[in-house]
Amino acid sequence: MPIERVTFLCFAASYALALGLELLLLLRPHWPLRLLAVLAATAGLLAQTLFMIGQHVSFASATGALLFPAWVLAVFYLTGSFHHRRLAWGIFVLPVVLGLTLLARAVGPSAAESPGVVEAAAGDARAVWRILHIVFFVLSAVGICVGFIASVMYLVQAQRLKTKAVPGKGLRLLSLERLETMNRRALAWAFPLLTVGLLLGIAQMVHEGVPFQGWSDPRILTTGLLWVVFALVLYLRYGFHLRGRRVALLTILAFGLLLVTLVTSHNAPGGGP
């Protein structure tokens, strides 16, 4: 089949099937179901890769900015399924993969609604700044997504502990310590990337002489708010030893802002986060 004929539906359906099988695994923990879930997700990943190549999906587009983290998280799901075979891993990762995929479909049906990175790079030297700005921002988005997944898992595990659920019954999750570490590392990687991405964006705007449209500009507002929340999480975490549930909730808030940023930035005039 020509790769141009691979559609959103191909990989979204594969991820949905994988998620359905993971849910079924909760009721019937049989290894063939897990194998089928992994195969379905692998098929989805392959289809998504072909789609992104075939459709020349640009990072600079809303579609690309959402599909790239989804792609990384699909890989994250597959590696996690290998390492944490007995845990309810897919239940938390696949909804994010599927959600980002569907959001990408909703916000940008066309793959090239803004200039592609490659094309832009070929245009002039200014595009280098733009490429770096987008790459850093998308990579930080991946970190925030991982932090979000770890935070949701943390809250569920903490709730299980709070209700003193019998270990080994129901959802099997990583320990609180492991989830907190995962969240901390994800944020520690994502924050510098986000900061550099933002600085590069500002530098690009200054260099191109784009006028500052004020704090009411959705791009400025959401991105600035995202950065502030992020900085706040890290400040509270390291400055006040804030841990556990509250850090998890703030991370979830950051993830929500990230989604808003990705959607609003690309729908705003000028494009780009």
Partner: peptide, 13 residues
């Protein structure tokens, strides 16, 4: 053993 099961839900190492 049950106590250890609970401890393992909180700590990894």
């Amino acid at each position: 053993s049950a106590a250890v099961d609970y401890v393992r839900q909180v700590f990894d190492r």
